[in-house]
């Protein structure tokens, strides 16, 4: 089992993510958000376990339900609130919204919506590090891309995973098999026994864990990241869990049958219970963590609310960096 400091760190990230997701969903209900809000309820253990393994210089391409991983890797609640509220001050400046946010310079890649499309760019960053001699043998910078059982079936994802294997890059594909691709059940999206079986086809190491068990996620993702850092090539981590919400706030997920719901617990509740039972945290400490999370999220929301929206009249409507292409010339 991981050390308790790491477990507490994960728990805090999970609480912060759940609190943040709930607050953003409430902002949507209050009609303050354009478009949908996407929450990672039920996926915080896996996502957070990945995020807290990362260090500066690593690369993370989170997907739709990765608030915990984003916080674990250093995203601030303010960046979330600014993006969800479409503020000009945010990293996407109102030009993109909700989960499509990040910072290439910080190694937190802003996703495009096309599933599977962010894996190859992570691999490109890792190849760049190798080509420029920036990698330290045995202690490599790693890249993680998130995907779900739905996105696992895109050509983009297969192509990228194969290249990662061919180049033997320190890449971890983090798969949340959350039983539903939007509303479509897994039996309509893949036919292999378990998604981890694809590891052998790609020629990479495969790991499987219970995505509702935070300790299992820490151990499994930790082992995968350690193997990648050590130079053992790409790692496929597949966690079984259930999305405990709709695809977005617009979706009530009424298509999820009761018997499926009964098979999966809530990773956050179970982790809290386990930490209290083992005496790692007491009820007061948990309450303090929750209060601190609410305080941080509320402060971010209040600040973002007070900040300016983009304005069409002052918007810089240029999709190209080179404004005057007529004068672009090599040295």
């Amino acid at each position: 089992m991981s050390d308790n400091a790491e477990r507490i760190r994960l728990f805090k990230v999970m609480v912060l993510a759940r609190t943040c997701d709930d607050r953003m969903a409430k902002l949507k209900a209050q009609n303050e958000v354009a478009g949908s809000v996407f929450v990672g309820r039920g996926q915080e253990a896996l996502s957070g376990a990945a995020g807290i393994q990362l260090r500066p210089g690593d690369v993370f391409a989170p997907l739709i339900r990765d608030q915990a991983g984003r916080f674990g890797y250093g995203e601030t609640p303010l960046d979330v609130a600014r993006t969800v509220l479409g503020r000009r001050t945010g990293p996407m400046r109102g030009r993109d919204g909700n989960v499509h946010r990040g910072d290439w310079g910080a190694g937190l890649l802003p996703m495009i919506s096309h599933l599977g499309a962010m894996a190859a760019p992570v691999i490109g960053v890792l190849l760049s590090r190798r080509l420029t001699g920036k990698q330290k043998p045995g202690d490599l910078s790693v890249g993680i891309a998130s995907i779900g059982d739905g996105g696992m079936n895109t050509g983009a994802l297969h192509e990228a995973m194969n290249i990662a294997a061919v180049e033997r890059l320190p890449f971890i594909l983090l798969v949340a098999d959350n039983q539903f691709a939007y509303s479509t059940t897994s039996d309509r999206t893949y036919a292999c026994k378990h998604l981890v079986d694809r590891a052998i086809g790609y020629g990479v190491a495969g790991h499987r864990c219970d995505g509702t068990d935070a300790d299992a996620c820490l151990a499994t993702v930790g082992a995968a990241v350690a193997a990648a850092r050590a130079g053992k090539g790409p790692q496929l981590v597949v966690a079984d869990l259930l999305r405990l919400a709709g695809h977005g706030t617009h979706d009530d997920a009424s298509y999820v049958p009761e018997d499926v719901k009964s098979r999966f617990g809530d990773c956050l509740q179970m982790f809290e219970r386990s930490l209290i039972q083992q005496g790692v945290l007491d009820a007061a400490a948990v309450a303090a963590i929750r209060d601190e999370a609410r305080r941080q999220i509320e402060a971010a929301v209040e600040q973002a609310r007070a900040e300016p929206q983009p304005e069409a009249a002052t918007e810089d409507w240029s999709a190209r960096c080179e404004r005057d292409l007529v004068h672009v010339r090599s040295a």
Partner: peptide, 10 residues
């Protein structure tokens, strides 16, 4: 597709 995505990342 992945060749291009790789180039973008690099």
């Amino acid at each position: 597709d992945a060749m291009t995505g790789l180039a973008i990342g690099a």
